[in-house]
């Protein structure tokens, strides 16, 4: 599944900007997009909003967005705002 995927690293210090870049990448994406959250320790409301937008665009373009390396604290946040069902997760 991830063999041909586009791989983007999310910087823990620039989550919103990197998610913006990911949104742009979705426009030209041919395959799945993998967002590597390994270096993200915590997310804030603006990052959550950015993720919600990203999920919306991914739905429109029928592109699968895979989140990799999401720590359990962030996963719980995504669960609480009901975003987990809109992404795939990779350990």
């Amino acid at each position: 599944m991830t063999m041909n995927a586009e791989w983007l690293e999310i910087d823990g210090e620039r989550v919103v900007q990197d998610l913006q870049a990911a949104r742009e990448a979705l426009d030209s994406a041919q395959n799945d997009v993998v967002l590597d959250f390994s270096s993200v320790r915590r997310i804030d409301p603006s990052a959550l909003r950015a993720m919600e937008k990203l999920a919306g665009i991914a739905d429109e373009k029928a592109v699968k967005v895979v989140l990799r390396g999401v720590n359990v604290d962030i996963y719980k946040v995504l669960k609480l705002v009901k975003l987990t069902s809109r992404f795939s997760f990779l350990a």
Binding site: R42, I43, D44, P45, L48, R49, D73, I74, K76, V77, L78, L80, V81
Partner: peptide, 11 residues
């Protein structure tokens, strides 16, 4: 808004 804040707060 409150739900998002509360979710983020868990961290």
């Amino acid at each position: 808004q409150a739900r998002t804040a509360a979710a983020v707060f868990t961290q």
